[in-house]
Design a protein around this nucleic acid. Structure first.
Length: 488
RNA sequence: GGUACCGUGGCCGAGUGGCUAGGCGGAGGUCUGCAAAACCUUAUACAGCGGUUCGAAUCCGCUCGGUACCUCCA
């Protein structure tokens, strides 16, 4: 496959040429949400980042299997709620069955992801549906001697593991430092070392989410589901594993350890991590309680928001920053994104109306290759978008007669911009005006009436039409060649 | 305390040795019944100090400031 896609591998801390293990197939696993609350802006980032990667890999011609899990068991709340499962806690509060909570938030997550125009993953496994696979994996880890039992719970023996492998290779940590510096937390009884992590936890009697296992009635450890399900659907070694930077340690580090302990080799070739979205310079997150949910963005119902912001604005906002940089949220930044995106779609629309010239005064293929070059450089969407803005400027200049495009180049540009915007970046205009003949006809009629009013210098009527349509978010622009309209 | 990362103009954000992205906003102008859009021009920048270099926002050192991870987190 002829391309030069380079991606940043957290494992090597370098950009590396992407070479799949079994071309043309690519296996890609991304950590999905824990479904105990509505998705917030932070959840949109990995979803969109890896959606771009999924789309781009397919564009490059790969057959991609994209696996994104739903975590519906297992994570502990915090030391104060020791032993209590997140899902279960919420269930008790709301007097619902745990699986009812899971279903409710999973559906809402799916709906939000659709609104953001992310493609659904190829497989979306749940942790609760893979208890058997997780137990089997624990058995292998025990067989190889890297787990120990303590009062019905099983822990991973990090110290022993580290003698043969390197616990900390992904996150850049050393076990000696972990020994000294791991925080003192409650609920560590039964562990040989503080940094050992649970593979299987025995459920206390109040705990209502539990499954039988050879060791106890209990539930799987925090990191096990991704290891087990990744191996099941993508093989013991697969190409790409993605997720938020906050999962780097201990989650992904422990996934590597579990896989090595079970199979004797690393599970993943390229580890990719998206950075955080910040609000007032601070990470937006569940624990800090400073998050804004996607539904709140879409409805405008949040004290920090002055109005609603549509899903595509959120998507464009996220794509205007590189995925490995932090992105600071503010309504000003969102508004800037909104206007910028509109500018791109406006340019795409006026392409239809350009008057072709004999020759083109600029090289559209150069701009196209610049856009793809940016994508090849570790998915540099902000740079790709900057090239599209440059093209938008040129398109307007053609419209003003200051630059020119030939007929074939106009068609080429149309195809390229439309494809790149919609298929590669996954951006769609809020309103698809072209496929509604009724609206087209109505608008034509209205604009004709307005034109007649203007000819009679009846500006009161002309302005009234413009004002009334503005209430429907329809914008009228008078140009030399007559009035144009668009959805705002 | 340990580890890692970051500090770019009013805001968001690319850029990792010379060619000084981009968007939004500001100012001035062209066009226009007005408005909007578009176009043109323009201002505002690389946290501070020192070093390497012919040349540094970019490399090195120190200082200051910030963030993330070390506990569930996208």
């Amino acid at each position: 496959m002829e391309h030069k896609l380079v991606i940043y591998n957290t494992l090597s801390r370098k950009k590396e040429q992407f070479i799949p293990i079994n071309p043309p197939h690519v296996g890609m696993y991304v950590c999905g949400p824990t479904v105990y609350g509505d998705a917030h802006l932070g959840h949109a980032r990995p979803a969109i980042t890896f959606d771009i990667l999924f789309r781009y890999l397919k564009y490059l011609g790969y057959k991609v299997r994209y696996v994104r899990n739903i975590t519906d068991v297992g994570h502990l709340v915090n030391d104060a709620d020791e032993g209590e499962d997140k899902i279960e806690k919420k269930a008790r509060l709301e007097q619902l069955e745990p699986m009812e909570v899971v279903k409710y938030y999973t559906d809402r997550y799916h709906y939000n992801m659709k609104q953001l125009n992310t493609l659904p993953p190829s497989i979306e496994p749940t942790a609760s549906g893979h208890i058997i696979e997780q137990i089997e994996m624990v058995k292998k880890i025990i067989e190889h001697g890297y787990a120990y039992e303590s009062d019905g719970s099983l822990y991973f023996d990090v110290e022993k593991y580290n003698k043969k492998y390197h616990y900390g290779k992904l996150s850049g940590r050393r076990i000696e430092e972990l020994m000294k510096n791991t925080r003192d937390l409650a609920g560590q009884e039964g562990k040989k070392n503080q940094f050992d992590f649970a593979l299987w936890k025995k459920a206390d009697p109040k705990h209502i989410m539990h499954w039988p296992s050879p060791w106890s009635e209990g539930y799987p450890g925090w990191h096990l589901e991704c290891s087990a399900m990744g191996a099941k659907y993508l093989g013991e070694e697969f190409d790409i594993h993605g997720g938020g930077m906050d999962l780097l340690f201990p989650h992904h580090e422990s996934e590597i350890a579990q896989a090595n302990a079970a199979t004797g080799h690393d599970p993943v070739k390229y580890w990719m991590h998206n950075n955080m979205i910040t609000i007032n310079g601070q990470k937006m997150g569940k624990s800090l309680n400073n998050f804004i949910t996607l539904n709140e963005f879409f409805s405008g119902e949040h004290p920090a928001l002055d109005r609603a912001y549509p899903p595509m604005v959120i998507r464009f906002f996220i794509l205007q920053a590189h995925y490995r940089s932090t992105l600071d949220f503010s309504t000003d930044a969102l508004k800037a994104a909104e206007k910028g995106m509109k500018r791109l779609f406006d340019a795409l629309e006026i392409l239809d109306e350009l008057k072709p010239q004999e020759k083109s005064s600029f090289d559209i293929k150069k701009i196209e290759s610049d856009c793809y070059a940016a994508m090849n450089d570790d998915l540099n969407t902000p740079v790709a978008i900057a090239h599209l803005f440059e093209l938008a400027r040129l398109i307007h200049l053609v419209n003003d007669g200051k630059e020119s495009l030939s007929k074939t180049d106009i068609q080429y540009t149309q195809q390229f911009v439309s494809y790149f915007l919609k298929e590669i970046l996954g951006l769609t205009p809020e309103h698809q005006k072209e496929d509604d003949k009724l609206i087209d006809y109505l608008m034509e009629t209205i604009l004709e009436v307005r034109k007649e009013a203007k000819e009679k210098k009846d500006y009161a009527t002309a302005d009234k039409i413009r004002q009334e349509l503005a209430k429907l978010n329809i914008q009228i622009k008078d140009t030399k060649d007559g009035a144009r309209w668009s959805f705002d």
